[in-house]
Design a protein around this nucleic acid. Sequence first.
DNA 1: GTGGTCTAGACCACA
DNA 2: GTGGTCTAGACCACG
Lengths: 127, 127, 127, 127
Amino acid sequence: MPPIRLWTIEDFAIDPSRPLYEQFVEQIRAMIARGELEPGTRLPSVRETAASLRVNPTTVMKTYQELERLELIVTFRGQGTFVTQSETAIRSSRRQMAREAVNRLEETARSLGLTLEQLWELSREKE
Amino acid sequence: MPPIRLWTIEDFAIDPSRPLYEQFVEQIRAMIARGELEPGTRLPSVRETAASLRVNPTTVMKTYQELERLELIVTFRGQGTFVTQSETAIRSSRRQMAREAVNRLEETARSLGLTLEQLWELSREKE
Amino acid sequence: MPPIRLWTIEDFAIDPSRPLYEQFVEQIRAMIARGELEPGTRLPSVRETAASLRVNPTTVMKTYQELERLELIVTFRGQGTFVTQSETAIRSSRRQMAREAVNRLEETARSLGLTLEQLWELSREKE
Amino acid sequence: MPPIRLWTIEDFAIDPSRPLYEQFVEQIRAMIARGELEPGTRLPSVRETAASLRVNPTTVMKTYQELERLELIVTFRGQGTFVTQSETAIRSSRRQMAREAVNRLEETARSLGLTLEQLWELSREKE
DNA sequence: GTGGTCTAGACCACA
DNA sequence: GTGGTCTAGACCACG
């Protein structure tokens, strides 16, 4: 079973001021969440990925380990790394991403002493 | 001209995994944004703050300099550091905080392939 | 002989990031250079000036001392401080201000590897 | 990927009365502006630079961070610091340096009540 | 008294 | 290896 096509660095939007592995995790997590990477899909190996992304292998390792911790990918020794088959895990990850995003918004609103509606209005003000 | 009461470390919610100065900036910025620190107010001196927060003076300096870059505070040589008198600068900072928060939310929605409404619903689903 | 009217802080354009006394020196020097403060004019006393500018007396002292060093003002003990009567000193100060300004420009041109003409063109380019 | 040759203190003209990091910023900025430091070039590491300039690493850090704020250099985690690839940013920085220099000149002319031509003539007068 | 710069050196995360 | 944060403490100019 061939893996998905190799990633290139253009597949990712990179902000050099933040850790690379963190951004890979986020963006692969989003690919899985929105179904672009289907359950059971085989991912390219760490070495392949490192080469195609022109990135240090340990960066890819860290990325995969984190995704594994999130139970979004699983590694079968000698066979490769695959997107989880568990729809539950994927849905739960989606939900968690949504929650974190909303929590951050609520946190900001609270720190400004505003309701979510007021924060929304404020963000829409021009100038 | 006495400053506002000294800060204690309890005035700040510290996450040890992130830079101290960054969190001080965020939280003082929020105090100014929500009017808790009024325009023209004198901030405690770098040394006082360092002592009361049990933190190195240079960490406080970095905090103040960053807030100065944001045009939220002004330093007068030999006299101390003051919250800006410019209501415009303060309002603009509030707006920017709101916008950034909302942008992050929209970014997450987009990365999940959802509308804001769908993201909101998803975050409210129970486990 | 009454002094010129007292200065107020609005008579000066203050940049809080630079030393006060330095900016007072520059701007009084310019007032003398362009003839706004005529030779022989009596300046307000250090104490008066400090009060009217709402500034530390030592700041005014430092200002006057520096202007005295530049031979643009002279102090007669017990009588007060006066703009120099020496037209030569004033002309020489004007020339020196002009030279310093031009030197700074030439310095910038050189550091950019440009002629003065090229520097000028560059500064006129629009966005 | 080796950096450019190390800097020595002779590469910089230091005025001890002004902040070191400020002068490093100015002069490196000029090197980039006049093309002596090409886009994409790797700068010597913070530690190397500190050692070769016989200066504290934090002084070099401050220098690099300021240049980064000016968008003239970019830092990649764990890899080093590089001159920006953006020709636009470099051109814009050149233009800004030129403008600031010319503005200062015009400001001086105005404060002396002269036109630029008159200021120029004045600076050329002999003693 | 104030802030600003600099040093010396530790410790950390990232690649 | 890289940069980034933080500490401890000196020294300076400014007001």
